[in-house]
């Protein structure tokens, strides 16, 4: 559905679209948090349905993604597109966007991994474009 509203401030409309994307990701079965983390590990946008230490999750996600990327490089895998951490209670998926920003999703165990991964993979190109434009403004 196309919006008829024309935002005067492009950055504001991009911000609102980023929020809509996170809200949409939260609507997937089993997803309990969706966050965008900058290169320093600070959470810039977040939607969640439980209390979460945003500083801790942001920093941890960056550390885990960085470590997985280095591990991949050690075995000759040049670019890391997604890191999936599986635990007893669910998954944490992280994907690079642009300029060191990451999209991280926290899910419960009942989440359908293929559904969440599909949505992430399809969302990333749009987020990349939004961030390129967002960072340029």
């Amino acid at each position: 559905m196309s919006s008829n509203v024309q935002f005067l401030d492009p950055r504001k409309s991009q911000n609102s679209e980023i929020d809509s994307i996170l809200r949409n990701l939260m609507s997937i079965q089993g997803v309990s948090a969706a966050a965008i983390v900058d290169s320093d590990g600070f959470v810039t946008h977040i939607h969640r349905d439980f209390e979460i230490n945003t500083d801790a999750i942001g920093a941890s996600v960056q550390v885990v993604f960085g470590a997985a990327s280095r591990a991949a490089q050690h075995v000759g895998h040049h670019q890391t597109n997604m890191v999936i951490s599986e635990s007893n209670d669910g998954y944490i998926l992280s994907t690079p966007i642009e300029a060191g920003f990451l999209l991280a999703l926290v899910t419960q165990r009942e989440a359908l991994l293929g559904r969440v991964r599909f949505e992430l993979k399809e969302t990333i190109p749009v987020l990349k474009k939004l961030f390129t434009s967002y960072l340029a403004n």
């Binding site: 559905m1 196309s2 919006s3 935002f7 409309s13 991009q14 609102s16 679209e17 809509s20 994307i21 949409n24 559904r115 599909f118 949505e119 399809e122 969302t123 749009v126 474009k129 939004l130 434009s133």
Partner: peptide, 19 residues
Amino acid sequence: AGDIVNVSENTRLKRSQFI
């Protein structure tokens, strides 16, 4: 992506209709 915001919204809508 001339208007990335509306393109993004439309893509999201079509994806969710399919899923």
